[in-house]
Structures are given as structure tokens and as C-alpha cells.
């Protein structure tokens, strides 16, 4: 029952996008999000969608996985679409009592939904093609300049990777404790909301205890290996930019510039 949950889903395959340096992908995602908020006309949206399609095709990740990411926010999409459709003032095309749909409303609703969908798919490309470890490595290296103003970048990255590492372990643990309590007659499938909340106590208490126990063990193990933060620490596989990374940067920045230019030109 809990096996269905996927978080930080990585799709393992070999593609141009997978091989890119995580810093490039982080920067690329950021640029893509900025570009989505720069464009203000159909041509711009077409460009954004086209860019995403090319990246998806290059990444070799099945489109099914992208759609799965959208399923999680389907309610958000519907609400955003609904409110923009009915509550945007403008020239009404269709009217029934006080409810009306305007031309501007249709445009606003469709662009809003499209923008959100592209946003989610664009950022899921990053998690789908980068392992969590590489992602935190990329963050650590990419944000290294913040060390100058005393931001503990290494520690934050370490916490992130530990947190990600613990997700599957805790899911498994939850499954185990749930079964153990069900063997003692606990009922997790009750429809009654109060009973349901009460049923969580025998699940959550052991889960917290186990999380603390594991955290304690891990801290001890790190201490025993003389872990003392990022200072002077070297990496087994240090991140290095390749030619393809430079090329990817050029494409990303060219794309961003084009988007900004399109947005400016048609609105000036």
C-alpha cells in the first residue's frame, strides 16, 4: 500500500540529459522557470512547450512519468483554470445569470493551466534525470560561493542527502509497524475520522522512536569515522564541467534571452 508512493523519483537510463552536470540542470531549471514567467504571448508559450518537448525527448524518460507528476497537482490545475475562466472580467461570450465566460477569461485560464503544467514538468525533468546524491552535490558546489557570507552550505547539503536517503527507509518501517499493529487487531481502514486519527497513535509513536534511534546510530557512525563537517573534505567523484556542459549552458542562456526578448518586443 505504501509502495506506490514515489518521492524524488529518479528514472534510471543513460541519456545526454542524465550525463549533464547537476549544476547545469539546476541552473537550467531555474532559467526555465524564469522564462515561463517572462513570456506573455502565445508564441512565447509555444517556444517554452517546444523547448520542454525537446528536453524530454533527449532525456529518454517516458512521457508517462511526466504525466504522473501532473496527476499530483490536478486539483490545483482545475481550481486555477476554473477561477480564471469564470472570474476574469472582459467581453462576455457566454452568460448565464451572473456567471459569464469572457474571451480574456478563456485566455487567462488556458495560459495559467499551461504555465503550471510546464512548470511542474520542467522541474520534474531535473529530479527524474538526476540521482538525489548528484543533486545535493550540485547544490553544494553550485552554492559554494555562499560560504563567503558564512552560510553552512556543506552542512545543508549533507542534511538534504541524509533526509532523502531516509525516505525509503522510513516508508519501509511504516509498512512494517502497520502490519505489526494490524496483527494485534489495529484497524487502519476505518471510515470514521476520529477512529482513523486515533489509529495513527500506535503507528506514529513507534515510527518517531525508530527515526530517532536511526538518527542516533547514524550520528554515532559518522562520529566514529571522524566526520567533522565540510572543511578540508575531498570528494571521491568531484564534479567537473565537460564540453557538453558548456554547450548546454549556451543553449539555456540563449533560450532564456530569446524568451525575454519575445516578451519585451511584443509588449513595448
Amino acid at each position: 500500500m505504501l509502495r506506490d508512493i514515489t518521492l524524488g523519483q529518479y528514472y534510471s537510463t543513460d541519456s545526454v540529459i542524465h550525463r549533464l552536470d547537476p549544476r547545469v540542470k539546476l541552473m537550467g531549471t531555474l532559467c526555465y522557470i524564469i522564462s515561463l514567467f517572462c513570456v506573455k504571448n502565445p508564441l512565447g508559450y509555444a517556444l517554452c512547450a517546444l523547448f520542454l518537448c525537446i528536453v524530454i525527448a533527449l532525456s529518454k524518460v517516458p512521457v508517462k512519468f511526466m504525466i504522473r507528476g501532473l496527476k499530483a497537482i490536478i486539483l490545483l490545475l482545475l481550481i486555477a483554470g476554473f477561477f480564471n475562466l469564470f472570474f476574469t472580467p472582459g467581453d462576455p461570450i457566454w452568460q448565464w445569470k451572473k456567471i459569464s465566460i469572457s474571451k480574456q477569461g478563456i485566455y487567462m485560464a488556458s495560459t495559467m493551466v499551461l504555465r503550471l503544467a510546464l512548470l511542474i514538468m520542467g522541474s520534474s525533468i531535473m529530479t527524474l534525470t538526476t540521482t538525489p546524491n548528484y543533486l545535493t552535490d550540485g547544490l553544494e558546489k553550485g552554492l559554494g560561493f555562499l560560504k563567503v557570507i558564512k552560510v553552512p552550505v556543506h552542512e545543508i547539503a549533507m542534511m538534504m542527502s541524509i533526509a532523502l536517503r531516509f525516505i525509503p527507509i522510513l516508508l519501509e518501517e511504516t509498512d512494517k509497524i502497520m502490519k505489526a499493529q494490524m496483527a494485534r487487531g489495529a484497524d487502519f481502514e476505518s471510515k470514521n475520522i476520529i477512529k482513523k486519527a486515533k489509529a495513527l497513535v500506535p503507528l506514529l509513536v513507534p515510527l518517531f522512536v525508530s527515526a530517532f534511534r536511526r538518527a542516533n546510530d547514524l550520528a554515532l557512525a559518522m562520529e566514529a569515522r571522524c566526520y567533522r563537517g565540510g572543511e578540508g573534505r575531498t570528494k571521491m567523484k568531484p564534479l567537473k564541467y565537460k564540453k557538453s556542459d558548456a554547450f548546454a549552458y549556451i543553449i539555456i542562456f540563449a533560450y532564456l534571452a530569446l524568451c525575454i526578448f519575445l516578451g519585451r518586443m511584443l509588449f513595448s
Binding site: 509497524i177 496483527a183 489495529a186 484497524d187 513507534p206 522512536v209 525508530s210
Partner: peptide, 28 residues
């Protein structure tokens, strides 16, 4: 059919020993 899992002590949750043991029969 009572099933005792591996490391069953990880399923304890109550504030005292007696109420924890009461959990099963209470559910029944």
C-alpha cells in the same frame, strides 16, 4: 493466529507496559 514480528519491541507505543499489552485484546 498471533504473529510476532521480527524485532517486535519496535512496535511498543503506550505510556506503560500494561496498557501496551492491553492494546491487542482491546482491539478484539
Amino acid at each position: 493466529v498471533g504473529l510476532v514480528f521480527q524485532y517486535p519491541e519496535h512496535q511498543l507505543f503506550e505510556t506503560d507496559v500494561f496498557s501496551d499489552v492491553c492494546f491487542g485484546p482491546k482491539n478484539m
